[in-house]
Amino acid sequence: MKRVMTGALIAAVVGIGGLGGAAAAQASHTGDQNTRQDCRTYSSVEQCGQPKLNDKQRACVDSSVQQGMTERRATVECHAFA
């Protein structure tokens, strides 16, 4: 019984420490978001802001959206691959 209680106590302390670390990481991440542009990554391609698309890329976005892809993802993928 003593081992079970000790194990539970250790798990609780580790859990609390983990939550504190996660909260600190979240706080710093939120601060970074305010200074950065709107960035997203699809198919291993990161895109920040709104790219300027040529006619072929715009047609690719329109086609992809009609097929069910989100516009944000289609914009990144068509900008990178079309």
Rank of each mutant, 00 (worst) to 15 (best):
3 R>L: 03
33 Q>F: 01
62 D>K: 12
41 T>F: 03
79 H>K: 09
66 Q>T: 14
67 Q>K: 13
47 Q>A: 03
63 S>K: 14
80 A>M: 04
63 S>G: 13
33 Q>D: 10
78 C>Q: 02
46 E>T: 07
2 K>F: 09
5 M>T: 08
27 A>Q: 11
40 R>A: 11
79 H>L: 04
46 E>D: 07
70 T>F: 06
50 Q>K: 11
13 V>L: 15
23 A>T: 12
34 N>D: 07
70 T>R: 00
81 F>C: 01
68 G>Y: 02
19 L>S: 08
48 C>G: 10
34 N>M: 05
34 N>K: 14
1 M>I: 06
82 A>V: 14
14 V>I: 06
32 D>P: 02
3 R>V: 08
16 I>N: 10
79 H>N: 09
29 H>L: 13
40 R>D: 13
47 Q>Y: 10
45 V>I: 15
48 C>P: 10
35 T>P: 01
2 K>W: 08
75 T>L: 09
53 L>D: 07
27 A>E: 06
47 Q>T: 12
11 A>I: 03
33 Q>I: 05
62 D>S: 06
13 V>P: 08
7 G>S: 09
70 T>V: 10
36 R>H: 13
77 E>R: 08
77 E>D: 09
45 V>M: 04
60 C>K: 04
41 T>R: 15
63 S>I: 11
1 M>F: 10
14 V>W: 00
1 M>T: 15
50 Q>G: 11
22 A>Y: 13
19 L>N: 11
22 A>C: 12
61 V>N: 03
53 L>C: 10
32 D>L: 04
4 V>Y: 14
53 L>F: 00
24 A>M: 15
78 C>G: 01
64 S>P: 03
29 H>F: 15
9 L>I: 05
69 M>P: 00
9 L>V: 13
17 G>Q: 01
